[in-house]
Design a protein around this nucleic acid. Structure first.
Length: 261
DNA sequence: ATGGTTGTATAACAA
């Protein structure tokens, strides 16, 4: 079957429910991973999404962070956090096996500044995610790690690589930490289908007219194991929502697959 | 220039 997977940092699901519903109706992904829902589980708009044809596995928290996996069909399994005996303090990781694919949805800590303790927490999160994948899954499994990963891998992935070199989101230490995870056997689906193309997924509100001037970063990714990368027919960024009224600062990223049995 | 805006919550904090 043809299967479409998407990731979208929604930056407050309650503040953007109407645009989310219209985007879902138009883009019609089979699975949508959300980050920064910024609400508790019981505040999540389950009913409105059910009416749109989606069920949701949600791990929220008050005011900050929060992740969810929306799917047309019920997931076979859902996992919140790393499930390694040490609870994750913030709601930044939810995984689900849905339509036979393991979908690992992360909102990786932003890191604040390379000199801030939060930066070390970001690196530690990425290392822990690498251990999580290696402990639980095989590179031959149908698996996608996706979400707001908060790291631009290459100079092509930021609007001004010289100026931004060494800043949070474009620092060698986090690029190395990301590479350590993907070295397990994950491919960047957007880059696979668009080598050499400058296409961003995030435009900071704090830079005046950042979207109109395309002052962005490619920090939202879909990273797939070989069986899924081989099944991937297309990957793209939908910049439509970013240009609308009161947008999220991120745009959705999608990938389409032809899944055999 | 170390700025700027946004959501949540209602004062700052995180991004």
């Amino acid at each position: 079957m043809t299967w479409t997977l998407a990731t979208f940092n929604i930056n407050g699901v309650r503040a953007r429910l109407e645009p989310l519903l219209s985007w879902l109706a138009q883009a019609a992904p089979d699975v949508l991973c959300l980050q920064e829902i910024k609400c508790q589980d019981d505040q999540f708009p389950q009913a409105a999404l059910a009416e749109a044809g989606y069920q949701a596995a949600v791990w929220g928290q008050k005011a900050y962070h929060g992740v969810a996996i929306l799917s047309r069909r019920p997931p076979q399994k859902v996992l919140k956090g790393f499930d390694d005996g040490q609870p994750l303090a913030e709601s930044r990781l939810i995984s689900a096996q849905v339509d036979g694919v393991w979908v690992i949805n992360t909102y990786v800590p932003q890191g604040r500044d390379p000199g801030h303790p939060a930066f070390q927490e970001k690196l530690a999160f990425l290392e822990r995610l690498g251990r999580f994948l290696r402990a639980r899954f095989q590179p031959g499994d149908r698996l996608v790690w996706l979400g707001d990963i908060n790291v631009a891998p290459q100079p092509l992935d930021v609007f001004d690589p010289e100026r931004l070199q060494g800043q949070v989101g474009f620092h060698p230490a986090e690029q190395a930490a990301l590479a350590q995870v993907t070295a397990w056997g994950l491919s960047d689906l957007f880059r696979l289908h668009h080598p050499g193309e400058k296409q961003f997924t995030f435009w900071d509100y704090r830079l005046p007219k950042s979207f109109a001037r395309n002052l962005g970063w490619r920090i939202d990714h879909l990273l797939a194991t070989a069986p899924l990368a081989q099944a991937c027919r297309a990957a793209w960024v939908d910049t439509g929502p970013r240009g609308q009224e009161k947008p999220s600062d991120h745009a959705p990223v999608l990938a389409q697959f032809e899944l055999g049995d």
